[in-house]
Design a protein around this nucleic acid. Structure first.
Lengths: 340, 340
DNA sequence: TTGTACGCGTTATCAT
DNA sequence: ATGATAACGCGTACAA
């Protein structure tokens, strides 16, 4: 059995409650006894028991993280380690711990969240993704359990606190950049349409084309999980159109890598034959051949702001619902060039 | 306040202790009351409180994960999401939760672990890396706190339970493969020498050369964090040797990507001019140009076995110390070819 | 300024 | 087969 508050109390000749107050650094305790008690704590090597504290407090100082389906390719995205860094920094600053929950099926994930929440394991939850119809989100909202979403919620946008980029604008700007290079036939390769981010990016893309007076063609838009089979064929179709696009907006760096590879196998050069612009700017986007021009969405900051905001929500009972928009920035490398 | 065991007791006209027994599915409770009590639990939507249970049990059913320094490039390695999947699967199977701890400095990480352990937040710990001198490992060992290491411990190998590949053998085999292709001048590019895995791989490499009767040259061995500045120069030096290597063993796929890139900028073709073989076989090793020949180390399994083993350690007081070796396999793609 | 006593939600021991 | 009661370690209202 470990050292408890009682042991410290005995050694320093005070009541347990006094020790408790010293831990909380209550102003109602004299400096003298504080010193005395702290000496005893040091001598015994006392460490407060979080579990007991949680029970007494009705608060755990633990944040639950909900990751997407671990069997998704998406799960392997370097996005996660990076956002985790941000989350961790934000949490550590205020002495919160992080508990993660994921699963092989949506049902497993949902069950995991229920365990965390109903079991009282966590004070609040951060969703690391945003999907169109999300059982987990609905559950948390209905229960009025504190949570923050990374990404834009699909509905009830005004009722949910979230941290996101302006993906619509980012995609519009990215597309405009390609337009400014003279491209008129621009394709879009997106991921799973169940993720809100995909939708936002495609809308921004289409908006830019419309503003430029260009009719967007359905043939130019592809959705698929690129790192799986099928991605290559899709690209093949696109390239074999009578009027193939001269540039592609790709919704994610990892997908862009796949596209790059497929194009290379087809002997199509980037950016000479076709330009590629993608999103996220993860570590290896500069390690591809050619290095990718990519929209940096500041992944670390997404995580950092999310945990910071959730903690505010937890500690301030009437903290208002709020959205936090993290800035993005186009990083130009060598995968885009002017049309000939 | 949530529904407690007492509410259920009242509704079903039994004592709280009876409800507790029903939850534990004690054989000493009649089927009749079990049914009655379960009905009451359903009606009220009761969920057991993990915190209270932990306090009473002196056991949390939470596993602490210690990640490496989050500012390391290493942290961004797709290794982590993958190993996390395995850890998570193993933990979920036995209803354990996962808590993560990381930090920006070694000191921060160490403090985090102390919080987890002394604070009673976790029952056991898994180290997701293995370094030469590790404060955290020493701390856990000295305290006799249950833990498992992913990777081979640097010392006290017989006293520590760990899950690892046979990296020595893997590296030896990999090098032999290059030798079998006719290469005689083979270089090694490793990462941080503080990681035991780096050491094992370099030793296996050297052993293979020795067995082939080839003198290993110091000039052929490079250590650096490749994705940082400096990596390029190091490669440059290697290539500009009078007798440059015709093949390279690279300790990690991510590094290999960097190497590939540098070589391309120097107009050196892989595998025509130089062969490259790397380790880990993460998702994008097949997305590089050319796709990497890489040693698959079964990252998922490393994680899965680690959490499984730790749980055994926790639930079985005299579970023996053991090492678990996960098999590896050379995956041949297109970054290695015969010497001309 | 400090001590006493109770509660947080469970499990476990000891009765019955 | 079930109930009463005491822990588990800490926080806090109330008393002193």
């Amino acid at each position: 059995m470990a050292i408890t508050i009682k042991d410290v109390a005995k050694l320093s000749n005070v009541a347990p409650s006094t020790v408790s107050r010293v831990i909380a650094n209550s102003p109602r305790i004299s400096e003298k006894t504080k010193i005395k008690v702290r000496a005893a704590m040091d001598e015994l090597g006392y460490h407060p028991n979080f579990i007991a504290r949680s029970l007494a407090n009705q608060s755990t100082r633990v944040i639950g993280l909900v990751l997407p389906n671990s069997t998704d390719v998406f799960f392997q995205n370097p996005f996660f380690p990076t956002v985790l860094r941000g989350l961790s920094d934000g949490a550590n600053e205020r002495q919160y711990a992080l508990q993660i929950s994921t699963g092989k099926t949506d049902e497993e994930i949902y069950e995991g969240v229920i365990q965390m929440v109903q079991g009282g394991r966590v004070d609040g939850v951060i969703l690391l993704y945003s999907r169109i119809e999300d059982k987990v989100l609905n559950y948390l909202r209905d229960r009025k359990f504190p949570f923050v979403v990374i990404g834009k919620p699909f509905k009830d946008v005004e009722l949910i606190t979230y941290v996101d980029n302006d993906n619509y604008l980012a995609s519009k700007e990215a597309t405009n950049y390609l337009l400014s290079l003279g491209h008129k036939q621009i394709g879009f390769i997106g991921g799973d349409l169940n993720f809100v981010v995909t939708i936002e990016r495609i809308l921004g893309f289409e908006k830019a084309l419309r503003e430029a007076g260009i009719q967007s063609e359905d043939d130019y838009i592809i959705h698929s999980e690129f790192l799986r089979e099928g991605g290559q064929e899709a690209i093949g179709k696109l390239i074999n159109l009578k009027n193939p696009p001269t540039a592609l907006v790709v919704a994610d760096d990892l997908m862009a890598l796949g596209v790059l590879n497929t194009l290379l196998e087809m002997n199509i050069s980037v950016p000479e034959d076709i330009s590629i612009l993608s999103f996220n700017n993860v570590l290896f986007s500069e390690l591809s051949q050619p290095p990718l021009t990519s929209v940096d969405i500041n992944i670390f900051e997404l995580g950092y702001q999310a945990s910071k905001k959730l903690i505010q929500l937890l500690e301030n009972p009437n903290e208002p619902v709020k959205r936090i928009i993290v800035p993005h920035q186009l990083v130009k490398r060598f995968s885009c060039s002017e049309t000939k």
